[in-house]
Amino acid sequence: MNGLKVLVVDDDPNVREIIRLYFEKQQIQLAEAEDGLQALDMVEKVSPDIIILDVMMPGMDGYDTCRELMKHYDIPVIMLTAKGDEFDRVLGLELGADDYVTKPFSPRELMARIKAIFRRMQARRPAVPDDQSQAIEFDGLTIRPERREVLVHNEKIGLRPKEFELLVHLAKSPGVVYTREQLLEQVWGYDFLGDIRTVDVHVKRTRSKLSDFGCDCIHTVWGVGYKFEVVV
């Protein structure tokens, strides 16, 4: 974890101090922001690897900040929320957050979430093996794993890393139905600490982006899970 840069955004100085003290022991570089506007300014200055973003803040709250971050950056975001309602957790994921932690939390739990995301980031860096580099092509849809590109009728679609990995996994086995548990295991990995609703949120986001370009290829199999199928 040496060299990892984390930006913590929270208006509560006590929360920032708890995270700072624990992270210092882990030799993690930490930057702090008190609100969303300051966070957006600091992203350019510190180039963080991961952002820990509180939801309830004065002025620009965590949701609005997350929206702005997703427009301009591809940085993993962990939402901090004191709310336990499923709607609030799902909203953060739908906006593009990679994970969430509910307050009160332990610094150790937060570190586990960060390590899980960091391991996935590391796993994406090596070159794609030869057996995975060949383009996956269907009617109007082209997926290029080695370039991490998705094109629909030659128009490039902007997918976040986990959305791309989900699409590739499904597209490699067209017609195969995957349960949500299988997708959590095979796409997110055993170290993922989120809940099964995360799969639904990522499928919804990926499907929406593709459908904007007229591509309907991820289908719900009610009571079971999801499958990939291009209907011509």
Rank of each mutant, 00 (worst) to 15 (best):
K204L: 09
I51S: 00
L21D: 12
L80A: 12
H202E: 14
L151Y: 04
L151K: 03
E68K: 15
D98G: 02
V90R: 11
G225S: 05
E86D: 14
V8H: 00
D200Q: 14
V15D: 03
F164D: 05
L193Q: 15
V101Y: 02
E163S: 09
P107S: 02
V15T: 11
T198V: 11
L30F: 01
A123Y: 12
I18C: 04
M70G: 09
R197Q: 09
F213Y: 11
Q38V: 08
D54H: 02
I51K: 00
G96K: 05
C215A: 07
L37A: 08
E32M: 13
L210N: 02
I51R: 00
T81M: 12
R119L: 15
I136D: 04
V177M: 10
P145D: 05
Y178S: 12
C66K: 07
E86L: 14
L4Q: 01
D49I: 01
E146I: 02
Q132M: 11
K204P: 04
C217F: 00
K115G: 07
N14G: 08
L166C: 12
V77H: 13
L7W: 02
E34M: 10
S106A: 13
K162M: 14
S211T: 10
S208A: 13
Q186D: 12
Y226Q: 05
S47R: 01
P129Y: 08
D200Y: 04
P58R: 04
R125A: 15
P174F: 08
E86T: 15
E185Y: 10
H72T: 12
G96Q: 05
P161A: 03
S133N: 11
L30M: 05
G194N: 07
L210C: 01
R89S: 10
E146K: 04
S133V: 11
G84S: 09
D191F: 12
G96N: 03
S208K: 12
G189L: 08
Q186V: 13
Y190N: 14
I218Q: 03
N154F: 02
T179S: 14
L30H: 00
D49S: 04
T198A: 11
N154E: 12
D49W: 01
E165W: 13
E155M: 09
G140K: 01
F87S: 13
K5G: 00
L210W: 01
R197H: 10
F228E: 07
A82S: 15
T198N: 03
A171H: 07
D12K: 04
E68I: 10
L193C: 06
L183C: 11
D130I: 14
L167S: 09
E86C: 08
Q186M: 12
F213N: 06
V176T: 15
A97Y: 12
R147Y: 06
P48H: 02
N154P: 00
M56K: 00
L7Q: 00
